[in-house]
Simulated scan of single mutants.
Amino acid sequence: MDDLAGFLRLRRSRIDPASVGIPTDRHRRVAGLRREEVAHLSGVSVDYYVRLEQGRATQPSDQVLDALARVLALDETEREHLHRLACQRRRSRVPGGRIRPELLRVLDLVSDGVALIMNHRMDVLAGNQLASLLYSRPLRGLNTARHIFLEETDLYAGWETCTLDVVGHLRLAAGKYPEDPRLASLIGELAMGSERFRKLWARADVRARAHGGKAYRHPLVGLLELHQENFALPGEPGMELLVLSAPPGSPAEDGLRLLASLGADGSAALDAGARGFVPPTRT
């Protein structure tokens, strides 16, 4: 799904030579930096760097990786991704899908916001009632990456930004869990079905999920401008709790109340299966 050699090639092609003090002219045919330029700027031999890009070098040292990250202008998330790709010992086992009952009770405590538990593939493993109402569908079987790219683009008011976040997250997950066949299958499905996904995947961007604004256009209650917080779950590798809330007194708060009332009135009745609560299993 992802490897060190491919990541280095892609990121090298995106560096403006002028930004690192290398003059260019109209005769230059290489996009970004040349291999020998990366080697010189990072302080490694040209032969060794070529072998890195060809996948023939042994595991590079942390010092070499840090030097390459500096030359390639990687941020902290991208730097960690680079180290993970280079060091097989740092790769993690594919997480299971077990959800503790205590976590399900936590979801029910979030009564005035949307609460979801997702895994590294962006599968929704469980959610509260407002989550099902927001997506207007049962949560069981919902994968938000597939939903954004292939199924329901109108729901996401900031669709283009959402797609950047999704691809960046999946690229990060592919580096962390390279032996996950379901993740590989999902990435292949998205690449086959979405031109935008293919273009963004080719950029080799990586992003960690971050807190911030998320806007939705719900067909019944209109625009919902919410705030998302992500919480890593200790002891649950690859899983995160996502909580979407509305600022007090905002139109979005009124919208969530209206959405909740629709569920309470029975117009969107939900059973345990619709909410995504499934018996604990391992994948």
Score class of each variant (00 low, 15 high):
L109N: 10
L109S: 14
V110Q: 07
S111V: 14
S111C: 02
D112K: 10
G113D: 12
G113N: 12
V114Y: 04
A115R: 00
A115E: 04
L116A: 04
I117S: 01
M118C: 11
M118N: 10
M118W: 03
M118P: 00
M118I: 14
N119R: 10
N119G: 14
N119P: 05
H120E: 14
H120W: 03
H120Q: 14
R121Q: 12
R121T: 05
V124L: 10
A126K: 04
A126F: 00
G127D: 08
G127W: 08
G127Y: 11
N128R: 07
N128M: 08
N128E: 07
N128D: 04
Q129P: 03
Q129F: 00
L133Y: 01
L134Y: 04
Y135N: 08
Y135G: 02
Y135D: 03
S136R: 15
R137L: 07
P138A: 11
L139C: 10
R140G: 05
R140Y: 02
G141P: 09
G141V: 14
G141D: 06
L142A: 09
L142P: 03
N143W: 05
T144P: 01
T144E: 09
A145I: 13
A145L: 13
R146N: 06
I148K: 07
I148R: 04
F149H: 01
F149T: 03
L150Y: 13
E151Q: 15
E152N: 15
T153M: 08
T153N: 04
T153E: 12
L155C: 11
L155D: 12
Y156D: 05
Y156S: 11
A157V: 12
A157W: 05
G158Y: 02
W159M: 03
E160T: 10
T163L: 08
L164T: 07
V166Y: 00
V167E: 12
G168Q: 01
H169E: 06
H169C: 02
L170W: 06
L170D: 04
R171V: 03
R171S: 15
R171T: 13
A173W: 02
A173C: 07
K176H: 13
K176I: 12
K176C: 14
Y177L: 09
E179G: 10
E179L: 11
E179T: 07
E179Y: 06
E179V: 02
E179P: 00
E179W: 02
D180E: 11
D180A: 06
D180G: 04
P181Q: 06
P181H: 03
P181D: 09
P181R: 07
P181F: 07
R182N: 10
R182D: 15
A184M: 03
A184D: 13
S185Y: 02
S185D: 14
L186P: 00
I187W: 01
I187C: 12
I187F: 06
I187V: 15
G188E: 14
E189K: 07
E189I: 02
L190C: 10
L190D: 00
A191C: 09
A191Q: 15
A191I: 07
A191L: 10
M192N: 11
M192F: 01
G193W: 10
G193C: 08
G193L: 13
S194E: 07
E195V: 14
E195R: 11
R196N: 12
R196H: 11
R196L: 14
R196K: 12
F197E: 02
K199L: 13
K199Y: 01
K199P: 00
K199E: 15
W201P: 00
A202D: 14
R203Y: 00
